[in-house]
């Protein structure tokens, strides 16, 4: 049984705008999936459907093996933690710890003290328990909202544009936090760079599903990216430029981690290659030795000139 299964779901707004059509997907336990797509693609609508705030006109949403409908929505919502785009919409209590405890108390969960402590620790807020929520920065408020959700221990985390409106440091911290979290996650985002750092799988949505695959498969699908109005992550753009300049690339990296891994691999391989040349030519003559020493020091010759 998967925590989330969506079968042929369709949703149309009151004004006739079709937000979702024939969408089917599922998320396995512990899997992190990004839903990407242009504005109006239905990303937020999808999250609201899963959270039971709207009911699909067709198809079915199954949470923890149970069908979601009007009668089960309130109960099933306990298994779903939705992080809103604007944290101000989901912080209600005057202090951080009170707000984190708000959800577990409402749900009548046990060990509230422990849940609050764990929620705050997981979101890096453990030292700010007594802080007034209205005095926190936007990034901090996002963390409080996440802590509040984690304290409820939901089976699935739904995150609506988690990195929007954050300054670079808060964004990096939040990405690190989500990356380390061992949870089932569905993230609706425009931020492919962040998604690449966090998720295992991506779904391209534009009313219907355009593609499902890994982030690398997504960024390699140029036409689809264009159709969905998506931009390559900056790191992928850089490596694509390097590739045109003859850089020996194995795969297009989609995240900083992958880029570092690839650079390390290439430097290691190419460095050894240059070193082998030095070794071969050191007995052959000083000129060759000099030339390859420079290459080893980083003054790489273009790939086709080696």
């Amino acid at each position: 049984m998967k925590p989330l299964e969506i079968a042929d779901v369709g949703f149309t707004y009151e004004d006739g705008t079709v937000a979702l059509k024939g969408l089917s997907m599922s998320i396995g336990k512990g899997e992190k999936v990004a839903v990407v797509g242009p504005n109006g693609a239905g990303k937020s609508t999808l999250l609201h459907l899963i959270a039971g705030f709207r009911m699909p006109f067709s198809g079915q949403v199954m949470i923890e093996g149970r069908p979601l409908d009007e009668s089960s929505a309130d109960d099933l919502r306990k298994h779903v933690g939705l992080l809103f785009q604007d944290p101000d919409d989901q912080i209600f209590m005057p202090t951080v710890e009170e707000d984190v405890a708000f959800g577990p108390r409402n749900l009548g969960l046990d060990d509230i003290e422990g849940r609050v402590a764990r929620g705050m620790r997981s979101s890096g807020m453990e030292t700010l328990a007594k802080r007034k929520t209205h005095r926190l920065s936007y990034g901090m408020k996002k963390r409080v909202a996440i802590a509040g959700i984690l304290a409820m221990d939901p089976a699935i985390l739904l995150l609506d544009e988690p990195t929007s409106g954050l300054d670079p440091r808060s964004r990096a911290e939040l990405i690190g936090l989500l990356k380390e979290m061992d949870r089932t996650m569905l993230i609706a985002t425009h931020d492919l760079e962040a998604a690449a750092e966090i998720v295992d799988k991506a779904v391209v949505l534009n009313v219907g599903m355009l593609m499902e695959g890994t982030m690398r498969e997504l960024v390699l699908a140029r036409d689809l990216m264009h159709e969905a109005g998506l931009e390559l992550p900056p790191i992928s753009k850089l490596f694509r430029v390097l590739e045109t300049m003859g850089y020996p690339m194995d795969d297009l990296p989609v995240s900083l981690d992958e880029a570092v891994e690839q650079l390390t691999r290439v430097i290691d391989r190419e460095g050894k290659h240059a070193h082998a040349h030095i070794h071969t030519h050191v007995h052959g003559g000083h000129e060759d030795d000099h030339k390859h020493s420079k290459a080893a020091a980083g003054e790489r010759q273009p790939r086709d000139e080696k």
């Binding site: 405890a101 959800g103 609050v116």
Partner: peptide, 23 residues
Amino acid sequence: DRADDIYEGLKCKGFGQEMTPWR
């Protein structure tokens, strides 16, 4: 609209009828 969002936020946290402090 904002009030609607806040209400959904409350529902997400299992809000029933009471808002009392934990401590």
